[in-house]
Nucleic acid binder design. Structure first.
Length: 567
RNA sequence: GCCCCCAUAGCUCAGUGGAUAGAGCACCGCCCUCCGGAGGCGGUGGCGCAGGUUCGAGUCCUGCUGGGGGCGCCA
């Protein structure tokens, strides 16, 4: 929230008050218009309040304009009534010049807020079963989850990254049975795991034991191997979890049993056909759900309820899970169950846990879809991707678009043509700034104290564009956090980098033959430093490095040597 | 049959009620005597269909069409 924005909003509220008009229930909307001719800020309040007041919007706007002009708001040079009744504020560039010290003063904290101060948020993501390597598509949840954690933390929340290990169900049994079968040269069971990695593991398993290991030995051995592999992959992409939560501990400590008892006690569990059911229909679910199967074992839902209760018991004020869209069917019953257990939803967050459903990733290779086939070689793992492309390119690729869209991840585009990845365009902007700083130092050009620099030298449209982007940045971050939409930061930083490259092209910073005045050099040196802060802060949220230098591209052919398709 | 998500330029996507819908790639042209050309500038080209709500709809609602994902005493 920039200062000028607050000033304008306050002035508009006062003008409404003086006109005996109500402030719209959603508050005063004040936005930068898309068209530059429409000024620096625009509000639609006249349109919103005119109808209930039975008045003409443009007349209301005219009254408000008179009051606002009388208020002598800083920087404001003109207020025009436009279209059906917009109020467009035209400001002197001085309002943008004020942004620069704001950015520099806050540095790494520029763009943060305290909106979520006091919240302890548990964010669970990835949580891939420890029965195989993380699939390339799982990289999406890794990147999105880590960036979202950063975003929530930027708003003042205490964020805890958690990975749930599904190590208690029959998945690991099927996994172990598959390993043993493969070790004996047999086909894995019907519901078992296939793929080359199982065969490789089976070979290693044979070497690890004298004689045939027991089912339990194979299970623990395989589990440990997969867990290690998963942790390694996540380390490679640069994500660290605060807690690796073992589902087993819930069963071992009787937490699952206690959940059933509690639900019975509250009258929300009942017996039917030898099983124990949750009356989830009373809490918004489409049907009741089984908690204890007729063979006496708990369902996944029962364990999941115990797990989420455990999280709340650890003092978190809000729980967020990032799940793939293929788990959509679990959401209603989990939320119904927690509700049945007496967990009250918070109005600002909705039901607990908050479940963010992300659409899946379609893997492509060379323009051809890669089916998630059981056959060997068709599995593309996150590790495969990381073997060919650096973590930054990988992460940014996953953060390019909103998670409501199925993402197409063409491994050939992200790897062999990785120079097309926008990450380099953005990182290059940061490296350029660092390069300019190095050159300035070499030439003995140093920055004066900011207070002694005349920022009014920044008048070029390219310079003002950069300042406009920087001014908008804190709100972009806040919206991205609130909307659980890290890709908005990606969108911002890509546009910002574009604006920087444009500035670089048109505006010389360092003294040379171009006729830059010493005063301009000083103002621009501070401007690029502010840009560096903006780029670095945004990239940090995305979990992408902001390099000070990048390797030069190898000289590419001039393109003239192309052989034509002569047969 | 029911539930969730999606449909914007040739392709991949931005745009979560505002005024003239934006990028990248691809295609067609330009720009290196000066801070890194991984760059800059211009051009071609678009909101699936039909209703509705609203002063105003790519955005909200309904229906349709077309994609994707779910609907177990699996996890």
């Amino acid at each position: 929230m920039t200062a000028i924005r607050d000033v304008l909003t306050t002035a508009i509220r006062a003008a409404l008050d003086d006109s005996d008009l109500p402030v719209p229930s959603a508050g005063v909307e004040l936005t930068p218009p898309r068209q530059r001719e429409h000024g620096d800020w625009a509000t639609n309040v006249a349109l919103q309040v005119a109808k209930p007041a039975g008045r003409n919007p443009r007349e209301v706007a005219a009254d408000l304009r008179d009051l606002l002009l009388g208020a002598a708001i800083p920087h404001v040079t003109e207020i025009e009534i436009a279209g059906p009744g917009f109020l467009n504020f035209h400001l002197a560039p001085s309002w943008l010049h004020d942004v620069l010290p704001d950015v520099l003063e806050h540095g790494p904290d520029y763009g943060t807020s305290e909106a979520l101060s006091g919240e302890r948020i548990n964010l669970e993501f990835v949580s891939a079963n420890p029965t195989g390597p993380i699939h390339a598509g799982g990289g999406r949840w890794t990147a999105v989850g880590d960036a979202l954690a950063n975003l929530l933390a930027s708003q003042g929340a205490d964020v805890h990254r958690e990975y749930l290990l599904n190590d208690a169900g029959n998945q690991l049994d099927a996994f172990a049975a598959s390993l043993l079968a493969r070790m004996r040269g047999e086909e894995p069971p019907e519901d078992g795991y296939q793929g080359q990695y199982i065969a490789d593991l089976a070979d290693a398993l044979r070497d690890a034991f004298d004689g045939e290991p027991s089912h339990a030995d194979a299970l623990e051995w395989g589990y440990a191997r997969m867990l290690q592999e998963i942790r390694t992959d996540l380390e490679r992409i640069g994500v660290r979890f605060d807690t690796w939560f073992s589902e087993r501990t819930l069963h071992a400590q009787g937490a699952v049993d206690r959940v059933i008892e509690e639900l019975r006690h509250r009258g929300h569990a009942f017996d039917h056909e030898g099983a124990v059911w949750l009356r989830s229909t009373e809490f918004g679910d489409t049907r009741d759900r089984v908690l204890i199967k007729s063979d006496g074992s708990p369902t996944y839902l029962a364990a999941d309820l115990a797990y989420h209760l455990d999280k709340l018991g650890r003092g978190f004020t809000h729980l967020i899970n990032i799940w793939g869209a293929d788990h959509h069917g679990q959401v209603a019953s989990l939320q119904a169950g927690l509700r049945a257990l007496g967990v009250e939803p918070r109005p600002e967050f909705g039901p607990e846990p908050e479940v963010i459903l992300g659409q899946l990733v379609n893997l492509m290779r060379g323009g051809e879809p890669v089916r998630i086939s059981k056959r060997a070689g068709d599995i593309i793992t996150l590790a495969d991707v990381l073997d060919e492309v650096d973590a930054d390119a990988c992460r940014l690729t996953f953060l390019l678009q909103g998670i409501d869209h199925v993402q197409t991840f063409d491994i050939d585009v992200v790897t062999s043509q990785s120079m097309e990845n926008p990450v380099y365009y953005v990182q290059y902007a940061h490296a350029r700034i660092a390069s300019m700083a190095r050159l300035a130092a070499e030439r003995g050009v140093s920055r004066s104290e900011l207070s002694e620099v005349d920022l009014a030298e920044l008048t070029h449209e390219r310079e003002l564009d950069l300042l406009r982007s920087l001014a908008a940045y804190p709100e972009v971050v806040a919206d991205a956090a609130h909307g659980r939409a890290p890709h908005r930061v990606t969108t911002w930083v890509r546009e910002f980098a574009g604006r920087f490259h444009g500035f670089y092209h048109d505006c010389r910073v360092l003294p040379g033959e171009s006729g830059v005045t010493p005063a301009q050099t000083q103002a621009r040196l501070w401007l690029i430093e502010a840009c560096r802060v903006g780029l670095a802060n945004a990239l940090a949220l995305l979990g992408v490095h902001a390099p000070d230098r990048m390797d030069r591209l190898p000289e590419s052919d001039e393109g003239g040597a192309q052989e034509s398709a002569s047969a």
